[in-house]
Amino acid sequence: MSKQDVPSSIAQTFTVTKFELLNYFRSRRFIIMLGIGVIIGALLTLLVGYYRPSSFTTSSIDFYSSWWGTSAAYIVILSSIFFGGDAISGEFQNKTGYFTVGNPIRRSSIYMGKWLAAFIASFMIIVVFVAMTVLNNFYYFGPNMPYQFVESFLFTVLYLISVLGLTFFFSSLFKSSSIAILTTVVLMLFAFSLIQNLVNAFVHTEPWFLITYGAGIIGNILTVPYPLHTAITRFGHVAITSYAVTVPEGVAILAIYFIVTAILGLVLFERKEFN
């Protein structure tokens, strides 16, 4: 028998991250997600190059607003679903958890290790998309990067952190990977946007409780001047109120979503039984 000390929980977290990433890079899902990111970038490149829409070609900031401001959030959501959708539920459904959980390792290390791996993999996809965006902007406007784009990029990273928190929460909530993924897809791509529009139009209340509303800062920061917080548009007798999230508000919404869902997801995973 050999005497060995079990590493610290932080070291074990990084071990899980390392091998989870290795699994991602070897699996088709990383290639597919990378392909999706490249296809979106390539399509935008072709369309902008061919049609030269004015919203893209007026100024550098307008280019980033039209390109990055409208597509970054979707890249974040898709990569979060690809890498986080079944990260925890798969441990139960595919029984991969049986390989690791019975070892001297805290479940929190497994959870955080997998979260970090999903974050790194998603971040790499985003970096590829950023590179395509910046290269296109360079082609039209030269080496000119408005500081708002850097801010928008940082908000995108915050949104990624937040969406991954939510995705991992659903992944911990359900033992079935397909239900976890489907729930995240429906909420992030359809339900939240629908609720946001309905609340805006009919309830006349700011949808501060929606993560997608908080993500509005990614595009808003690229609009000069920054959009008004509340705008009322009148169509005859009908007045429609629309809200633009402010930067402090958006950062707070995204941060709170991450903190709450990360804690809840972790508690659920700690309590969930392998049976």
Partner: peptide, 13 residues
């Protein structure tokens, strides 16, 4: 060390 049921290993490893 324990072996419980038939664990699955990450398929790409």
């Amino acid at each position: 060390a324990a072996l419980i049921e038939t664990p699955e290993i990450y398929p790409s490893l």
